[in-house]
Design a protein around this nucleic acid. Structure first.
Length: 661
RNA sequence: GCCGCUUUAGCUCAGGGGUAGAGCACAUCAUUCGUAAUGAUGGGGCCGUAGGUUCAAAUCCUACAAGCGGCACCA
């Protein structure tokens, strides 16, 4: 055995496959310097055997090393992290010495930092903080890392009055190697997993965006901190482009488009419940009809169940105990009619509730009569109107409402049928989302939570069934440990809105508990009673949220089959009025949703107005068209028009407007 | 529910202790026009709600409500 030399040589393999030899303990910065001085200026971190490291970290053995610059995605993220954890944190501590730092991670496009302030700060204070950040950036302070033992690290933050940092260190599993980052000799330090930029001079363009409240460790029982959100980019140009893109995205906000396109509105007296206008309800119906056709050929039967149900059923189902804070409860009492008197003469003792879910009602239908295993699976669908008493702060346009209509169904089946039903459902969702034009769908498999009902064997089977179903449907998905419902695992389909917020739409949930609680049974082959399994499932989720997502995704320019007005017949002069009426009649006879614009306005004005209203087609008619029985067809977004025979144009539009299913 | 912000005409927004402003929209009149704004005139507001301060409040203060951005919760 050969004796270890004081400084053995190591081989470093670069991304292009080239190898170089260094003395053990070489740092990323030294490697960069040995390659090119320009590289040493630009490099900000290193990836050593796949792990991001600071440039000052020594490399002790043979390794794959990639040098990271800000021009890469991971470099940009490191820079954002430094802007949050170093620039923002130090600026805040300079301006508010008694502020207490919690955590400051990066997020899509930026970062945030959670901080406890003595007095509330407002968005105006952000400008001051941002100014201080700019001043600090100009100092180009170097960022210096030191390693500390647990006790030392705790001491350092105790001295600085940083209880949240102490908490993080105390909860950390390791005893040493706590990384503290300082900015030169400014006295500022922060605890961080790193890596960080070697100096503030690598910081690009940044902007603080807004302030919000956020709970420490994400738990509403904990102290609420102030969260400062910011964005950071390589330079001013990128920052500007991002801000512009945000502005554009805000124009797609479904609440704004809903008003502009006269689709729906909300008002104080019915907060969280949508008033659907004729045009909006046309979209709603078109979508509902589409799903109804899909379900019908997929072997579903449709039902309708009561809105108001006695709390006896909710107690039996478990909702009264577990879900009551989200329910609208109605006293089952005749109200007092005396003027100025109490609403109820006596304290109500009997209650009903607006249904927050359809499942218990569907079990009631299942329980009528005796079911045989030959009847299963029963796929019971309902466009169920549900009410949930959502927290005020949760409401958000159509995305989060208090009255919603789910494209809901419950599949009652045997355990052996779970797999095939789940596979069929995943295929159905895939087809529907493809029809809607959604590509960016995030699929989550939510696995068993700590508190759960049912044996591990049943959970193994259920989770595996869903996993296989997703695989067979060819869907990529991520697994979320502990996120499942207490009664079973679930699949969730998430879609993003215009500004990138993710909303859950479709879902499949396995339930072994409710059939038990509500005593649903079927007679098996063996002549004995058995429990069916219930699959709760929705493809769109709710019509409200899905339409909201559709509006944002299409920026209001809905596909033809969903457009509330598919075609406007616009005249050039009043000479063409009679002919325009004929054209309209033909369109309507072909089942198209068409309107007439005979107003005494210039055609430019009409085209502009209907284009802004996002009408997919305009049939322009003037004296010439009336004479020749043609129409000038203008498609939304198109620059010019085509002249077509009336019957051909109507037929073509009819063809194009056919729903995808 | 919690934190911060906002609330003025149908919409977007300016203003600010002393008779309420603009653009768009709307109405009327003129114009009959060939593919993204024709012109003129006019109507329209309890300045979110309720209290308070003041000779005087849309403006200052307080409370409440709703909306917006987050958090928590969730389809």
């Amino acid at each position: 055995m050969q004796s270890r030399s004081a400084s053995p040589e190591i081989t470093v393999t670069l991304p292009d496959g080239a190898t170089r030899t260094y003395t053990a303990g070489v740092t990323g910065m030294e490697i960069a310097q040995s390659i090119a001085p320009s590289l040493a200026k630009a490099v900000i971190a290193a990836r050593v055997d796949g792990v991001q490291r600071d440039l000052c970290d020594p490399i002790q053995q043979d390794a794959q090393v990639a040098l990271i610059k800000v021009d890469s995605d991971e470099g940009l993220e490191i820079m954002r992290h430094t802007v949050a954890a170093q620039l923002l944190a130090r600026a805040v501590k300079n301006l508010y010495p008694d502020a207490k730092l919690a955590i400051g991670p990066t997020i899509d496009n930026g970062f945030y930092y959670d901080i406890e302030f003595k007095a509330p700060i407002s968005s105006e204070d952000l400008e001051t903080i941002e100014k201080e950040m700019r001043r600090l950036k100009e100092t180009n302070a170097p960022i210096i890392k030191t390693l500390h033992s647990k006790a030392d690290a705790i001491k350092a933050f105790e001295d600085r009055g940083e209880p949240y940092k102490m908490d993080i260190i105390e909860r950390a599993p390791q005893d040493g190697d706590f990384q503290l980052y300082a900015q030169g000799d400014t006295g500022f330090i922060d605890l961080c997993r790193g890596p960080h930029l070697p100096s503030l001079k690598h910081v690009g363009a940044f902007k603080l965006m807004n302030v919000a409240g956020a709970y420490w460790r994400g738990d509403s029982k904990n102290q609420q901190l102030t969260r400062i959100y910011g964005t950071a980019w390589r330079d001013e140009k990128e920052l500007k482009a991002y801000l512009h893109q945000l502005e554009e995205a805000e124009k797609r906000d479904h609440r704004k488009l809903g008003r502009e396109m006269d689709l729906f509105h909300f008002q104080e007296e019915a907060q969280g419940s949508c008033f659907w206008h004729p045009k909006g309800f046309t979209v709603y119906h078109a979508l509902e009809d589409y799903i109804r056709r899909r379900l019908s050929v997929s072997g579903y039967v449709e039902v309708k169940t009561p809105q108001l149900i006695d709390n006896k059923l909710w107690e039996a189902s478990g909702h009264w105990g577990k879900y009551r804070e989200n329910m609208f409860v109605v006293p089952d009492v005749v109200p007092n009619t005396e003027e100025g008197g109490k609403v109820f003469k006596e304290e109500p003792t009997r209650f009903m509730a607006l249904k927050p879910m359809n499942c218990p009602a569907h079990v009631q239908i299942f329980r009528q009569g005796i079911k045989s295993y030959r009847d299963l699976p029963i796929r019971m669908a309902e466009f169920g109107c549900c009410h949930r008493n959502e927290a005020h702060g949760a409401l958000h346009g159509l995305m989060r409402v208090r009255q919603m209509t789910q494209d809901d169904a419950h599949i009652f089946c045997t355990e052996d049928q779970i797999m095939s039903e789940a596979v069929a459902f995943c295929a159905l969702v895939k087809d529907v989302y493809a029809d809607m034009g959604f590509e960016d769908v995030r699929v989550v498999l939510a696995l068993r939570p700590e508190m759960r009902a049912g044996s591990d064997e049943v959970w193994d089977k259920a989770e595996d069934g869903l996993r296989q179903a997703l695989t067979q449907a060819g869907l990529e998905f991520v697994e979320a440990e502990g996120e499942g419902a207490f009664y079973g695992p679930k699949i969730e389909y998430h879609i993003r809105d215009a500004i990138g917020r993710s909303w859950q739409c479709g879902t499949l949930q396995l339930d072994f508990v409710l059939p038990e609680r509500l005593d649903a049974t079927y007679i098996g082959e063996d002549g004995n009673r058995h429990r069916p399994v219930m699959l709760h499932r929705a493809v769109l989720g709710t019509l409200e949220r899905f339409i909201g997502i559709m509006i944002e995704s299409y920026a209001g320019k809905l596909p033809l089959w969903l457009s509330p007005v598919q075609c406007v017949v616009a005249t050039i002069t009043s000479e063409a009025d009679d002919y325009a009426r004929e054209v309209l009649a033909d369109l309507k006879a072909a089942g198209l949703r068409a309107e007439l614009d005979l107003r005494n306005e210039k055609i430019n004005y009409k085209v502009r107005e209907h284009s802004l209203a996002k009408v997919p087609f305009i049939f322009v008619v003037g004296a010439r068209e009336a004479e020749e029985k043609t129409v000038a067809v203008r498609e939304l977004g198109g620059k010019d028009q085509s002249f077509e025979k009336l019957d051909a144009a109507v037929q073509a539009l009819q063809e194009k407007s056919r729903p995808p299913f």
